[in-house]
């Protein structure tokens, strides 16, 4: 077991950094790269689905932002037109 661990560590160092203290781009483990490319950090899995730029559809984020905008808008209208302009003793001069 100690021998295996040392061997693994040595492999990682030699394949990913290329030298002591080096911080260049990581080098892929050749075994995890197939013909379709690979995703850094994803181990041996390949690309499952390739989509175009506008096919990315974070509709949940859109809804969250829409709700947030609506809250900000309603609060602004309430704060300015109801609380401030509708308040007593408004300074007019």
């Amino acid at each position: 077991m100690p021998a295996d661990a040392e061997t693994d560590t040595g492999d990682v160092v030699s394949s990913s950094s290329g030298g002591p203290g080096g911080d260049g781009p990581p080098v892929a483990d050749r075994d995890s790269v197939d013909d379709d490319g690979y995703v850094i950090g994803s181990g041996r899995s390949g690309i499952v689905r390739r989509i175009d730029h506008d096919d990315f559809d974070p509709v949940g984020t859109l809804v969250l932002i829409a709700i947030y905008m609506a809250i900000v808008g309603v609060m602004w209208v309430f704060m300015y037109f109801v609380e401030f302009l509708g308040g007593d003793l408004t300074v007019i001069g």
Binding site: W76, Y80, F81, F84, L85, T90, V91, I92, G93
Partner: peptide, 13 residues
């Protein structure tokens, strides 16, 4: 809205 307050509603600083 702030412009409206100054011009329309007559809020002064």
């Amino acid at each position: 809205t702030v412009s409206y307050g100054a011009v329309g509603a007559g809020i002064e600083m």
